[in-house]
Nucleic acid binder design. Structure first.
Length: 492
RNA sequence: CGGGGCGUAGCGUAGCCCGGUAUCGCGCCUGGUUUGGGACCAGGAGGUCGUCAGUUCGAAUCUGGCCGCCCCGACCA
């Protein structure tokens, strides 16, 4: 393992994989397609969970937990949904092992323990949840039902990438039921806004809110909204989705309610989710050739303090000063790590904490003790300055805010520069190949055109942006009339 | 499931064509010198060469089966 990370420009995928491993975020498990999230990586996910969970609670949602296993008959009740996920389901068929009579010490699946009905390991929980909602909902007084679940799901993917696509992943899925279509649509849009807000305010990652084309819609939904983010290689990453389910699941699972007027009607549903994929997004949106760059609001460690010392005596003198800083910063609610290991040199520690993306580093050595100063370095710009040690406590909060802001602004500027409006298919292909990034172009609205463009260019319609203005134009592919531009990109 | 490639120490590898008991780097351990940007020197530990069989006096190397993994395609939060 070399000391230097591969560079982003050389091979973005290699850079990503190495970074994930070297920054101690995650690694491939020995289990096919699965991922081990390491403590440091998991602590970032926990920060995301906390922030999101609060936003869900603030919008009136509560948490619950539903089973991992879904009986096949229940799973197939909503046909479109079942069909959409059928190709990537793990299925439990037996419930017991036994000693292999021909191979002592080894186990075989006991053929006598075959399940009468197979259990599907949830690829998503609509089926199991709606079958439960049937029991919970009778009257308009039971509505709206606003529930979120933090869980793992399994999708048997052919090829996997850490965080972006693994056989098992962690996520949150909200499932709500409403008395009216209007209210359900409002919920769908509200949660899309929550996601966009989270991405921008916490992850410092600008996103484009939009609506999926028919082809990209969630199976079983009437409408799928999404947020799309741009990675530093110009590719798009779907960072969250919110679906308006109409009455599809209510009908499939017979979930009816009595209205105020005494009429019986099917309820209206939504579902929405974000996953550990956001970790991949966070990494690819901000990190550089030195490693991870974490926005302060999601950094498990805000500040790391590295003492520069030659002997025990120097370290203890430094420690006295550091203790004061630790105390005041921790009281102010910041997570601070004092790296007083005597097994590593300062240079090594600098590199290591940069790799892990800690936003601010303080270095204190004998020179500083003499001058009453401390060297302060920020991860996002890699700039350093020396300030008075007495100013540290007031300096840090402002600096962290500034870093959060700067990372966002930088990502936004990059994103905006990498969105190109094109008028012809030649231009479209050229931009995708040479400049990369997102392309705003007219599309005739047909699935045929969408598929043809995808086959020729590997670019997909990421979404119809919600802020896309009415504008007469002609489809870049078919030449037919179009009223709106849609967002194309190659995607993860 | 189609097309290509690879399995050698914790990780990354050389050796394989042309058979003689395994190379180098990182990491790890010990001692010393170092310590304001990934230290240096010296010594050391660690290997059923994926697996099973065959050929041979002798197999990491040649032959065959099996297992596993990676890359490209189809699928995808």
């Amino acid at each position: 393992m070399g000391k230097q990370l591969p560079t982003r420009s050389e091979d973005y995928s290699l850079w990503y994989n190495e970074l994930v491993k070297r920054a101690d975020l995650a690694e491939h498990s020995d289990v096919r397609g699965c991922m081990v999230i390491k403590p440091y990586g998991y602590s970032i996910w926990e920060k995301m969970q906390q922030a999101l969970d609060k936003m869900f609670k603030d919008t009136g949602h509560v948490n619950a937990y539903f089973p991992l296993f879904v009986p096949k008959s229940m799973f197939e009740a909503e046909e479109k949904n079942a069909e959409g996920f059928a190709k990537e389901c793990a299925i439990v068929t037996h419930y017991r092992l036994k000693t292999d009579p021909e191979n002592p010490g080894k186990l075989i699946v006991d053929p006598a323990a075959k399940l009468e009905e197979e259990l599907v390991v949830r690829p998503t929980s609509e089926a199991i949840i709606w079958s439960t909602y049937k029991k919970w909902i009778q009257s308009y007084r039971d509505l709206p039902l606003l529930i979120n679940q933090w869980a793992n799901v399994v999708r048997w993917e052919m090829r996997t990438r850490l965080f972006l696509r693994t056989a098992e992943f962690l996520w949150q899925e909200g499932h709500t039921a409403h008395a009216t279509a209007d209210e359900a649509v409002k919920e769908t849009v509200q949660m899309l806004n929550v996601y966009a807000d989270f991405a921008e305010r916490f992850m410092a990652m600008p996103v484009i809110k939009g609506r999926k084309s028919d082809g990209e819609r969630f199976p079983g939904a009437l409408d799928t909204y999404c947020i799309e983010a741009m990675m530093q290689d110009g590719k798009a990453l779907q960072a969250g989705t919110s679906h308006f389910l109409g009455q599809n699941f209510a009908k499939a699972f017979d979930v009816k309610f009595a209205s105020k007027e005494g009429k019986l009607d099917y309820v209206w549903g939504t579902s929405w989710g974000v996953s550990t994929r956001l970790m991949g997004a966070l990494i690819m949106a901000h990190s550089d050739d030195e490693g991870l760059v974490l926005p302060p609001k999601l950094a498990p460690i805000h500040v790391v303090i590295v003492p520069i010392f030659k002997n025990e005596d120097e370290l203890s003198k430094i420690t006295i000063e550091v203790e004061k800083i630790l105390l005041s910063l921790r009281q102010a609610g910041y997570s601070v790590n004092f790296d007083n290991r005597d097994t590593q040199k300062p240079g090594f520690k600098f590199a290591e904490w940069e790799l892990k993306g800690v936003p601010v580093r303080l270095a204190i050595g004998p020179r500083d003790l003499e001058n009453g100063t401390v060297e302060i370095a920020r991860r996002d710009t890699k700039s350093k300055q020396v300030i008075n040690i007495s100013d540290v406590t007031s300096f840090i909060p402002t600096l962290l805010d500034e870093i959060q802001e700067n990372i966002y602004t930088r990502a936004l500027k990059f994103r905006d520069e990498m969105i190109t409006r094109v008028e012809t298919f030649d231009e479209f292909k050229r931009v995708l190949d040479e400049k990369t990034g997102f392309v705003l172009a007219h599309w005739d609205g047909t699935a045929e055109t969408e598929t043809a463009i995808k086959e020729e260019t590997k670019a997909t319609i990421r979404c119809v942006p919600l802020d896309s203005e009415e504008e007469m134009g002609i489809c870049i592919y078919s030449g037919r009339p179009s009223t709106k531009r849609v967002l194309f990109a190659r995607a993860y």
